[in-house]
């Protein structure tokens, strides 16, 4: 049983003629770290929002560990770190984690102990009682990841987790992801950074304009960036 199966998913934003996702299919094996790569407008973020149940009016099928989405209980199998830093800057890191822990239905004591663990995992333990508005971009990005890890999900979905941060924070996130994956967590990593995808992931799905143009093992690709440009073309994607 795959961690994630996406079968012929088609999704359209009401105000646009073209489908954001068009007959999109891919699978993520349990325990793997899988890259989702594509230029702007490829449908990566839309796919993440379909998987996490934010968009529900799609055609096709999404299953997580065999359970068809959208499903309330299965949501707890997913840890999702969205591309925008989606934490409350008016709260401290600990308050954010306890809040999202409550949203995940975790008992308070369990949420508190897990919060401490993920803060240590992401290097934020010393800043737990600090308002997030005082954090640097890199710290906020790491907290964004900590929130996704809090309820110990089986499948971690990361949408551009290292965008706009300093090399130290990026390195820390890579290390954390590698350790989590080694411990058995399945990771789907959506990224623009080819070097990041090639170094961390064993499988890759390349998407363009809402469709899959490559889905297979990373080992078959010599240079992901060159491969990416060959498949998607070198023209600018500003739309």
């Amino acid at each position: 049983m795959n961690a994630l199966d996406i079968s012929a998913v088609t999704y359209s934003y009401g105000n646009k003629a073209a489908n954001a996702l068009n007959n999109f299919s891919m699978s993520v094996a349990p325990g793997s770290m899988h890259a989702l790569v594509g230029p702007n407008g490829a449908g990566k973020s839309t796919l993440m929002r379909v998987i996490t149940g934010q968009f529900r009016s799609y055609a096709g099928r999404v299953t997580i560990y065999g359970r068809t989405m959208p499903d309330r209980d299965t949501l707890l199998s997913i840890g999702y770190a969205p591309q925008p830093i989606s934490v409350y800057t008016g709260l401290t890191a600990m308050e954010n984690l306890l809040f999202f822990g409550a949203m995940a239905g975790m008992p308070k004591t369990r949420a508190a102990s897990r919060a401490q663990e993920v803060l240590e995992q992401t290097g934020l333990a010393d800043h737990a009682r600090q308002l997030v508005s005082t954090y640097s971009g890199g710290m906020q990005r790491r907290l964004n990841l900590a929130v996704a890890l809090l309820h110990s999900p089986l499948l971690l979905l990361l949408d551009e987790p290292t965008v706009g941060i300093d090399p130290q924070s990026r390195y820390h996130i890579y290390e954390t992801l590698t350790a989590l994956n080694a411990a058995g967590m399945t990771v789907l990593l959506s990224t623009h950074i080819m070097e990041e995808a090639q170094r961390l992931c064993r499988a890759v799905t390349l998407a363009d304009k809402g469709t899959v143009i490559y889905d297979g093992p990373m080992s078959e690709i010599d240079n992901l960036e060159r491969f990416f440009l060959e498949k998607t073309g070198r023209g600018l994607r500003d739309d």
């Binding site: 999702y80 969205p82 925008p84 409350y88 800057t89 999202f100 949203m103």
Partner: peptide, 14 residues
């Protein structure tokens, strides 16, 4: 809505 925290809430069983 803009910073995504609202959308994030919808990824929990709430």
């Amino acid at each position: 809505k803009n910073d995504g925290t609202l959308q994030r809430l919808f990824t929990y069983p709430v």
